[in-house]
Amino acid sequence: MGYEPLVKQNPLRVLKLTGNDKKMGLIMARAGLGKTALLVQIALDTILRGNRVLHISIGENLDKTKLWYDDMLQAILQECPVAKPHELIDMVRQHRMIMTFKEAAFDRSRLEERLNDLIQQNIFTPDCVVIDGFDFTATDHAKLEDIKNLMESLRLQTWFSATSHRDDTRVSPTGVPAPCHELDDLFETVVLLKSYQDHIELEILRDSGKKAEGSSHLRLDPATMMVRQED
């Protein structure tokens, strides 16, 4: 597609997004730290590699979700200009579909129904699904495993976001905070966004299904919310 430099330069390579199409990943952070920004960057990286992304936004409206993509894409284009930006914008538009749901309207059966609508009628066949705003406090291991099985059967890489809370100190042995502390074995990769005085750091808690070692050396630029390598 001619966007290889954008893909190669992306610091998100650390998350090993390519290869495993059945992978389930999780981005965790307290409210307002940049979970959606990171999910959208994962989605855009997937699209730039020529794949299709279904973005499911729970409790958010369509326009706001579109705006995230527009903003992140502009930020990418500012850093790495391409010859024909409108072609890239068009390509992203064609490789992305957004579905928004009210909190109460989203469940596993609805997800399956919608995915079947898209895939069987050949409307849009995603390679990756990002699910933003999923309520992990209202789910349990069995329910999430059920979703994982569904996504695996459709060979879909899936990324979730989850909100952690300062006053809930429970954590899993691999360091995954509540409300996902009892669900961490279902995820290949878990990334925690941690806020420091002047920056936000990406801490990889689980990698390839195991407890991760060492630092990711990745940060979120507070101005653009773009992922950067530490200097």
Partner: peptide, 20 residues
């Protein structure tokens, strides 16, 4: 929803998104 999306898809449509 499926029928609506199908009908748009048949018409060279790019489905931007759905709100349910």
């Amino acid at each position: 929803q499926g029928a609506i999306m199908g009908s748009l898809n048949q018409r060279r449509g790019v489905i931007v998104g759905t709100s349910e």
